[in-house]
Amino acid sequence: MGCVSSKQFKGAAEHEDPAVLAKETTFSVSEVEALYELFRKISHSIFKDGLIHKEEFQLALFRNSNKKNLFADRIFDLFDLKRNGVIDFGEFVRSLNIFHPETPLADKISFAFRLYDLRGTGYIEREELYEMVLAILNESDLLLSDEAVEQIVDQTFRQADLNSDGKIDPDEWKAFASKNPALLKNMTLPYLKDITMAFPSFVLNSGVDD
């Protein structure tokens, strides 16, 4: 795409160069530019400051800026690489790159581990898994007895916690996820392969001076 106008990034000059982001990720320069369209839309939905705030992320995900969800919170926190409470364009592109269909499975496995390691201890602990099961049951309006939830968690630990130390370490997670690839389905977004078709406006508009 040789027709990228710097004008497109004017007013958002703090955003990283698409060429740099393309070099670091699976995305091409024109795909990064298309992602900028998406980023601009989300980051201007409420605060209009060119950064994605939690409320804007929730609005884009759930059509509701107030909807709380443990897993959306985790995704937001992991996207927020600088840990400053907002997602900038570079963070958006680098994080979405994990979800690209062509990103190596090992990267997806590692991202999922960090997602589920709620307290950042380096392990997925039993209490964390219990908390996440309660969250998904609550989200799905499913009622299960405490005993049933314990059984689900116990069963999972029997399969995943190979050294039976009560926590799942990164190697155990890697083995478990490799054996159960369906668990990583949510780590791939087919949309990312056709991003320039989904958001062509940048490509169409680029180079147009007004």
């Binding site: 995900l61 759930f62 059509r63 897993f71 998904i136 069963q155 668990l183």
Partner: peptide, 25 residues
């Protein structure tokens, strides 16, 4: 049957992971 459920399989169905929604216009 709870005993045959995999906790991670359950969790992975959360709407919170549905990043495809970000792409909807």
């Amino acid at each position: 049957k709870p005993e045959s459920m995999n906790a991670f399989a359950l969790i992975s169905r959360s709407q919170g992971f549905n990043l495809g929604n970000l792409f909807e216009k």
